[in-house]
Amino acid sequence: MPVTAEGSVQTVHVHPRARDYPGSFLDGVIPQEAELTCGTRIEPGKSYGFFTDTTLCIGCKACEVACKEWNALPADQIGFTGMSYDNTGGLSANTWRHVAFIEKRGPTGTRQTDQAAFQSGWLMMSDVCKHCHNAPCLEACPTGALFRTEFDTVVVQQDICNGCGYCVPACPFGVVDLNPLDGKAHKCTLCYDRLKGGLEPACAKACPTDSIQFGEVPVLQARAEARVEQLQQLGVAGAHLYGAPEGEGATGGLGHLNAFFLLTERPETYGLPPAPTRPANRVAPGLLAGLATMAGLAVTALALLGGRR
C-alpha cells in the first residue's frame, strides 16, 4: 500500500516492513538536507565541489557503492584485476567513484622494514571527476551537451550528447568515457539531481570517515589548507594538495579543480598527472601554424603556376 507523506504531492513507496517503524518516516524530502548532513546550504550560483582527504580513506568503497546505487550504474567487470584489492580498476562510463589501493613497498618490492610493526602500508584514495574550473571536456564538446551547471559543476546532458567521443581524449585525467551500449559520454555529475533537491552528493554522504567532504569550494580549500598544516605538524611530510588554484594537478591553465585531493605521495603513485595542461591553449598555435603552412605553400604554388611562359 502506498504511503502518502503529509504535505508532499508525491506518493512514496516504502517496503512493507518499513511500515512497522513509522517513526523512521521522513516528511518527504527534508529541504536543504545537506545543511544537516554536511553543514552546507546548496544554492544556485555558488561553486560546489569535493575535498577528498586520502589520509582519512579506509578503502571501504562505500562511495563507489553509494554512487552506483543512486545513479543506477551497473558493474563494469566481474573478476579479478590481479592487483591489490582493487577490482574496479578505474573510472569509466559506469564507475564515477574509484577507490585506489596502493600498498607501499620499499625499493626491493617488499614491505618496508622501516615501517612500524602492525601498521598497514596502505594508501587509499577515492578518485572522481575533478570538475575542472576550465574543464577540457566541456571546452572540447561540439554539441554543448557538456555544460557548466548553476552549481559550477560539469555535467553531460544525455539528451544532447551524440557520442562524438572528443571529450574522452580531452580530459587530462582519463575520467569521461563513452558507454558503447548507449553511445553517449558519461561521468560524475556531482549528483546534479541531488544538489537540485538540496541533498549532499551520495558518495560524500555515505563516506563514513569524512574522507570525502562536500561543500563550497572556497570553504573546502581553506579547510584543506588547515588540514595540510595539521598533518605537516604531525610529521606527515608528504601531505600536500592536488588541484588547489594553479597548484599541482591544476597547472597549465586549468585554474583549479572543484574536486581536489589531499595526497601524501607524489600524484603519479595514484595514477594522477602532476602537471596536466588545458588543451584549449593549443587550439590557436595549431590552427595558426597550419594556416601559415597553407599560405606559404599557396604562394609557392602561385609563383610556380604563374611563372611558366
Partner: peptide, 26 residues
C-alpha cells in the same frame, strides 16, 4: 559513421565553440 549516436549528428550545429576544433571544423 564514427559518431556513437549518429542520428544526432545535427546536434553539432547547435552551437559554435571556439575552444573546440571539432566545433570549428564542423
Amino acid at each position: 559513421y564514427d559518431l556513437h549516436t549518429p542520428q544526432r549528428f545535427a546536434n553539432m550545429l547547435r552551437i559554435f565553440r571556439r575552444t573546440s576544433p571539432m566545433s570549428i571544423g564542423t
